[in-house]
């Protein structure tokens, strides 16, 4: 401390020390404490281990969603091409009539519908 305590402060310090001393726990039985420590260590390790599978499941779910999206996009393009071929339309003629943005937003909407979002 940067200042010398006065008498009342010194006495108060002693009171605080004794109050704490009286309520302070007895020395721990370290053999018993070690069992608790080991249990806590086990919990920490299990928590770490359980986090790993969660990351893998999340990665697998992402991969699945992306594959579904790619599959849906492929199906969509194939269906459109077949439909246009059936109608005798040329792919280039359709693209020239419709703006690219509308084509893309329709594609995105179909992907989202087919993947359940």
């Amino acid at each position: 401390m940067t200042h010398a305590p006065d008498d009342s402060q010194t006495r108060r310090g002693r009171v605080l020390g004794v109050l704490a001393e009286r309520a302070a726990p007895a020395r721990p039985d370290l053999a018993a404490a070690r069992k608790r420590i080991e249990a806590e260590e086990l919990v920490v390790r299990l928590e770490r281990a359980s986090r790993r599978p969660r990351v893998l499941v999340a990665a697998a779910a992402c991969a699945l969603v992306l594959s579904c999206a790619a599959f849906a996009a492929g199906s969509y393009l194939r269906d459109r091409a077949l439909a246009r071929a059936d109608a005798g339309e040329s792919e280039l003629a359709v693209l020239a009539q419709r703006p690219m943005e509308a084509e893309m937003s329709s594609l995105v909407a179909d992907i989202f519908n087919s993947t359940g979002f």
């Binding site: 605080l16 020390g17 109050l19 704490a20 001393e21 009286r22 309520a23 302070a24 726990p25 007895a26 721990p28 404490a33 608790r36 420590i37």
Partner: peptide, 22 residues
Amino acid sequence: RVCAALAGYDGALAEELAGDVL
């Protein structure tokens, strides 16, 4: 002693806290 002060001089609570600290 610090645990006791933090626990409001409650012996049982101080013991619980000290176990956690350990």
